[in-house]
Amino acid sequence: MKIPKDTVNVFIYVQHLLGIGHLRRASLLAKTMDKAGMSVLFASGGRPVSYLDIGKAQLFQLPALHAADNSFKVLKDINGSIVDDEWKEHRKEMLLSAFRKASPDVLLIEMFPFGRRQMRFELDPLIALAKSMNIPVISSIRDILTTHKTPGKSEWIIDRVKKDIDHVLVHGDPDFIPLEDSFPLAEKIKDKIIYTGYVVEHDQNRDPSYRTSSPEDRKGVLVSAGGGAVALPLAEAVIKAKNLSTLNNVPWLLLLGTNLPDQEFNDIVKRAPEGMIVERNRPDFCALLSKSQLSISQAGYNTVMETLMTETPAIVVPFSADSQSEQTDRAQKLEKAGALSLLSEAGLTPENLARKIDDVVQKSISTIKIDVHGTHKTTLFIKSLIEKKTNQRAIQCPK
């Protein structure tokens, strides 16, 4: 059944606050839905990313905000000023106006209510508006959630899901990491949970970027340190570890996120050792990864999945500030399976990193089987909802 293009089928809301992992995952879904013939309006609330690829989906850029630090408690605008109630009210009205005008078939929200509670000033009224328009609300979440230590927070999430969310799409594989591992109360909403598999660009047979190079054709070390202040400890360690490791004579490429201020970026460029190139993040990351003999990175969802897809030997340093457990949980699971090697933030020194590099290059990695068809399965599910809604309209309004 062909979906009509004269209306917006899917309204995607995503807010990235520190890194761009949420934006990356949502953009892959938007691009896949667009290729499947759906009309997508992509509402992004974070700082603009120049290489964002959402296919032919329509981008609706809200006034940008970001987290002041890794506590995620203080929100700042594009100029670095703390946002006030007037600013929030203005942005909320922009979002609601766009949603009313779009009148989509489906609302897809990244993370909420499992995360992004800082955005309730606009998400609560957005969800209320969708419900008043009889539009299904879907929560899109990653495989592992941050452990909630505040009393009552998990129960609040369950209450909100039962009240406001029609479906929860978990972009993971329950045979590898079930949601219950990080969110024990998931059993209470099991009737709404749908596992899609991991969201990655494509499988190896479709996308040349993922075609694995043979070990003898791989050369060099690729370091992706992420964005913002969280990138600095890894970047500093890498700069000093290069000449201590057995890979000191191969090319090194250090990629830093667009959120890292220019002054700090330029300082790292100046201090990089001979044989190391420092650049901002690149859209051809997967192609670079598939040709590298070693990857060094944090352990975010997207980077780890792309590393596994390209079968690249890897060292990961999970982001764990302010009790963030998601990356550590994922990395520990994968290290146990032999798919990568873990170095904790607490143990991150140039000497420890160099020793870890020397150890990893002597080992072979284990290939693990997980469901990586998240973009395709998510698109099929959303399309089935839209077709069902279209059929219901046809029954209610016969010609």
Rank of each mutant, 00 (worst) to 15 (best):
Y301M: 04
I78R: 07
Q332N: 14
Q58Y: 12
S71E: 12
T367V: 12
L123V: 05
Q298F: 08
K388Y: 12
A229Y: 06
G275C: 08
W87P: 03
F42L: 03
R91T: 13
Q362M: 14
K336C: 00
A321L: 14
V223N: 03
S245A: 09
A68D: 10
S44L: 08
I141H: 05
R280E: 00
I141Q: 00
K88W: 10
I277L: 12
R91E: 11
P273I: 14
K242F: 04
T7Q: 15
A36F: 13
E345T: 13
D358E: 04
I109G: 11
P318I: 02
E110P: 09
D329P: 00
S154T: 10
D85Q: 15
M276S: 05
G338A: 06
N248I: 08
R116Q: 10
V250G: 02
A235C: 13
A354K: 04
S384M: 02
E351Y: 10
A241C: 11
K242M: 11
V14Q: 02
S44C: 13
E335W: 01
D159G: 08
T310R: 02
V170A: 07
E216F: 09
L255V: 09
E279I: 03
H90Q: 14
V238W: 11
K92F: 10
P350G: 04
I395D: 11
A225C: 09
M305R: 09
G220Q: 07
N266Q: 13
G228K: 04
G257Y: 02
D267I: 04
P113R: 01
A272Y: 06
S224D: 00
W156S: 06
I158V: 15
M133Q: 15
L52V: 08
H22G: 03
I141A: 07
K399T: 08
S325T: 15
L23P: 02
A130W: 06
L59F: 07
F176C: 09
A229V: 10
N134Y: 08
I165H: 00
K73M: 12
I82A: 12
R47V: 15
D53G: 04
K388N: 14
Q58N: 15
R116V: 04
I12S: 04
K31P: 08
V10M: 06
L52M: 14
A102D: 09
I386G: 03
A241Q: 07
F112G: 02
G19S: 07
K356H: 05
N391V: 09
A128I: 08
L340R: 00
S341A: 13
G80C: 07
L385H: 05
P4K: 13
S140A: 13
R282S: 12
Q204G: 00
Q118T: 14
E311G: 10
R271W: 05
G228V: 10
T147L: 08
D77L: 09
F176K: 05
S139K: 06
K88C: 12
D166C: 02
Q58I: 15
D69S: 06
K92T: 15
P4T: 06
F319Q: 11
N205G: 01
F112S: 09
S103L: 14
K2L: 11
T328P: 00
I138Y: 06
D181E: 15
K88H: 11
S341E: 14
G115N: 12
F381L: 15
D53W: 14
F285C: 06
K153V: 11
P313T: 01
G275H: 04
L294C: 09
R393I: 11
Y198M: 02
T312G: 07
T375I: 01
Q327F: 09
Q362H: 12
A337G: 01
L222Q: 01
N259P: 10
Q327G: 11
L179G: 03
